[in-house]
Amino acid sequence: MTDNSIAIPPAQSQLGAVWNQFRVHRGAVFGLIVLGILVTFVVFGPFLWPEEKLKVSEAMKVKNQGPSLMFPLGTDQLGRDMLTRMMAAGKVSLAVGFVAMIIAIFVGTTVGVMAGYFKRLDGPLMRLTDLFLSLPLIPLLLVMVMLFRDKIASIMGPELGAFTLIVFAIGITSWMQAARIVRGEVLALKEREYVLAARSIGAPSRRIILRHILPNVVSPVMVAATLGVAEAIITESVLSFLGLGFPPDFPTWGRLLFDGLQYMQLYPERVIWPGLAISLTVLSVNYIGDGLRDALDPRIRGR
């Protein structure tokens, strides 16, 4: 008797629903594919294309070469293979982006939850967030790198030192957006009945926050995190571009671009490859963030 012509969609897990909505966003799928290719390139590339150890005398003979079978992207002014350098640099660039984002999200979520949940902390913490938002970030980052680079390099070595300093500096200057988003969400969530129920059975604030509130702010935080990766990669490459980022033997894409600038007129490809890599990464991450925002929003999902 029942009319079965209207098919009831099969029950779906939440993750499945999110994925279905995400797939609809063409840009996001494109972003995911491009980012996947880039990550494969920097993570697995070195296994397929191992670094050739050339002696200095040999390297000097092959410097400034154009693309060839031996060096698909040519070599730089010191005879180093550009493909190897692009892979090594990409690894650092992406690592900086992810680690800085994790720091920023951690600080931002903590501040946001504290400000949203505890009324007494709300005023001071949000004031602090506003203050941080009016800091001149690029000048401050440049000053931080200039002042602390040598000191930290002498403690941790030039490579790890540069990485720690830059990741930390970017992380603690980009948590403000996440804090604001999380605070807004928490303010709304803590008035909900299930939080009241949890409190009425005597759950301590710590458990309410960890078990009941945090899982519900995951979606906006994830969107902020995705966009944060793009932001961090750009900030890092700006620092490297201005010559205040990573050392030349531990390059990032920004540093490669900076190194290529001097030879731009003769060998423009040395600037174009790293620039293209940065732009593609940021573009794809931004598209993924866009798609995630739509997919995680239950009001849009299922429309």
């Binding site: 840009g27 793009a230 750009i234 490459s237 700006v238 571009f241 671009l257 600038l261 731009m264 600037v271 620039g275 293209l276 940065i278 732009s279 940021v282 573009l283 931004n286 598209y287």
Partner: peptide, 13 residues
């Protein structure tokens, strides 16, 4: 979207 994503130092170069 491209304008957001491509950093100014790369468009400049």
């Amino acid at each position: 979207m491209i304008g957001f994503s491509v950093p100014t130092f790369f468009t400049g170069t």
